[in-house]
Design a protein around this nucleic acid. Sequence first.
DNA 1: CGAAAATTTGACATGACTCAACTGGAGTGG
DNA 2: CCACTCCAGTTGAGTCATGTCAAATTTTCG
Lengths: 193, 193
Amino acid sequence: MNIKPIIEHFANYSPLNALEIKELELRLFERNIKRKQFILQEGDVCKHYTFVVKGCFKMYKVDKKGNSHNLQFSIENGWIGDIGSFHTEKASELYIEAMEQSIILQIAKQDLLYLYIHHPKFNLNFRVLIENAFVSLQKRVLQNISLTAEERYLDFLNNYPRLLNRISNVQIASYLGVTPEFLSKIRKDIVSR
Amino acid sequence: MNIKPIIEHFANYSPLNALEIKELELRLFERNIKRKQFILQEGDVCKHYTFVVKGCFKMYKVDKKGNSHNLQFSIENGWIGDIGSFHTEKASELYIEAMEQSIILQIAKQDLLYLYIHHPKFNLNFRVLIENAFVSLQKRVLQNISLTAEERYLDFLNNYPRLLNRISNVQIASYLGVTPEFLSKIRKDIVSR
DNA sequence: CGAAAATTTGACATGACTCAACTGGAGTGG
DNA sequence: CCACTCCAGTTGAGTCATGTCAAATTTTCG
């Protein structure tokens, strides 16, 4: 199991000492996930936090009409999971699906709680992680309520250049909250200027 | 200074012991805020986390055209602040304004960091607080990208009944991301059914 | 290669915004 | 208590943004 990526990841926050690394490693497990495989489906309880070592995931909800709406993408060195379901231990309404062949590290709830209690550094690091994610989500809400679809698309291009050659415009449209047809028109308008 | 509300607030998470309460009380300060008074303005650095003992606040951004977009409301027993600015110590793009005569408790960054380091309970409690806020924000993003304005308004009525007799429809419209005129039409359509 | 998915295009329908005007209620000062 | 202003709310006409549906084309992946 290669835990180097996650150790380096935490080094960007409060770096882990040798004991913390050992305690973390004891509780992580590695999985290989095939393209189109799910690590969470609607109705499941989300039992793990997932760190992406390699690959790409989308988390989305399917509405009553059967349309999917992408809430989040995660690639290398990112986290993904349904935090609400994880904490309440109630059925999730979300799907998490690999968009590429992927390698992940997972930690179960009781193991994470153990780390929180015995090694407060993890409490600190996960608090900072989620604070950053929260701030990003606030920006997205502000964009959703104040910008046009074209402005949101241009902003997406600026903010997530690493995603562009990995995911289709259908997926981007679903993330932005527009139809693929309309995104196609937006792209046409942009190039013809 | 009346710190009972905030102690009872934390009692819903991991309750504070006597020492933690004392340490917290030493670092909180109370303020009376008049209606229409700001506790944060664009360009300021957000230097405090704010707990609302009594009253009602809105946090919003003003775009280039001069339009306001409400990111969040907070009432009794809620928290408010620009977490991004608080951590980076960079200028905020947001305003936080009292919508009623209000009483708040504030804590400065170095004091909060002190509590985080010396009393891990605060790290835990603020982590859980922000996790809950994060999950709520995720729901809001999903609604923004998947529901019509009418559906979002009906959902707002269900989820925030306590706010309804305290804030105007203009403010709700700004929160939902529609114009006041269009919200008025939505309301007309709803009653005529 | 062959099937499935992504992308584009166009015609049309609906959602939502803009602007201007009007109404009515809540303060405010004389 | 009245006149006044200010702001929230409403209405309607016109316009722009975005969705729906169907079809054709291109790309991707097994």
